[in-house]
Design a protein around this nucleic acid. Sequence first.
DNA 1: AAAAAAATATGACATTAGTCAATATTCAAT
DNA 2: ATTGAATATTGACTAATGTCATATTTTTTT
Lengths: 234, 234
Amino acid sequence: MGEGNTYLCKACACSSVSVFKSLSNEEHELLSSKLKCNFYKKGDILYREGSRITGCYCVQKGVLKIYKTGIDEKPQIVAFARPGDITGYRSVLSNEVACTTVEALEDSEICFIPSEIIFALIKKNSDFALSLIQLTCKELNQANSYIKDIAQKTVRERLAETLIMLYETFNVDAEGYITINLTREDLSSIVGTATESVIRILSELKSEGLLELKGKKIKILDLKKMKLISDSIF
Amino acid sequence: MGEGNTYLCKACACSSVSVFKSLSNEEHELLSSKLKCNFYKKGDILYREGSRITGCYCVQKGVLKIYKTGIDEKPQIVAFARPGDITGYRSVLSNEVACTTVEALEDSEICFIPSEIIFALIKKNSDFALSLIQLTCKELNQANSYIKDIAQKTVRERLAETLIMLYETFNVDAEGYITINLTREDLSSIVGTATESVIRILSELKSEGLLELKGKKIKILDLKKMKLISDSIF
DNA sequence: AAAAAAATATGACATTAGTCAATATTCAAT
DNA sequence: ATTGAATATTGACTAATGTCATATTTTTTT
């Protein structure tokens, strides 16, 4: 892990897509003067479910997987975080122990933002507070949708949905492969099924001409049909 | 439905458990001067998924069920609202159409709070904003937990969990029956399963001495054992 | 109170998805 | 390049759960 430093973190403090977009120049200064940017290697744990955290984490570079631990230590992935996203703010704001474990999926640069700063910004800037509320509301709605899907759809439908989500979240490389490396096990802990089922259905979808597989890389060949499957229409 | 009126709504404006606890006297005045309290009959719909709403709803009396509509119009219950709870704030704050349908489970009195008031209060009072953030964070965490459970637990385990949740949320009457009337179908749309499965497992649990059933009324006889089942230990 | 509608209950059966075991492949470290 | 470990794959089997049909009971309406 690299040492912390205090330069202005472009991905979080400045990004127009991030929750920090409503900060004034002065507030940006305050924020960036307190940031500590750290390097995490693939597989590193930022924090574990149940531990106390003293600030939030903002992704500058890389990808994080965020999961809860269930029966027999089986992880359930509930979200990813990409550059511009923040994580840990829930526990910070509610002053509770972390409700998820966060792990770097690839080598990543992550800024740490101490709790006080977040609280100070909420106090100072009601637009920032509103952005935070909107962010959590959006995530809450997504979570509720996923509850509905996981309760009502088949594994095949959920896998199709997950692939589309990954496609939309991480885009594709020059060859059309989704630019994220997940193990079959990771996929199974998003979909909520056994690893073997993911493998079987992936090759099914491949033989139906919907997918191309090259190791962990996945290319969606027929997005339209994939959406139909995901919507339980097909 | 009854006519709106402007008296101070005790359940929402004053409740120390509600999100409004951090309001000043002056802000309470503002809030209660704008409230409209309405009566809804059992089965009445407050608003439907996809419709525009212009404020939030605060439960004064009664119970609301909050659900998303899935495949073949099958509802998935994602929450209940009891006196002191508010609903609709997500769509209001994000300025999006309602993401759930809300229905009165029993005859209810519900206050309507226009959007402007909510926004004004966020702007004026950062503690109120923080309360709202904390509320959504708490709900988000619950939703993520439920995703984990629904993905990893069996129907039996989830039903046990649901019964415990209902027990803790709605308490029991003098005879020990949980004080909420849900159809087996309602139960199935919480648990995420077929109605027949709920019926079967309920009578299983009854024959195992864990439950007493009297029509829709449910009494948990062995909470400890029920928790073990819910935790996949038994 | 009677009739109709809705909800509950049960059995038989089909389907889905999970588990276990064996093998193959890929990846990482030396 | 070689070894070992992790990951992926496949098949056989089992368990869980959904679906459909039908009967019964409860609730609501007239």
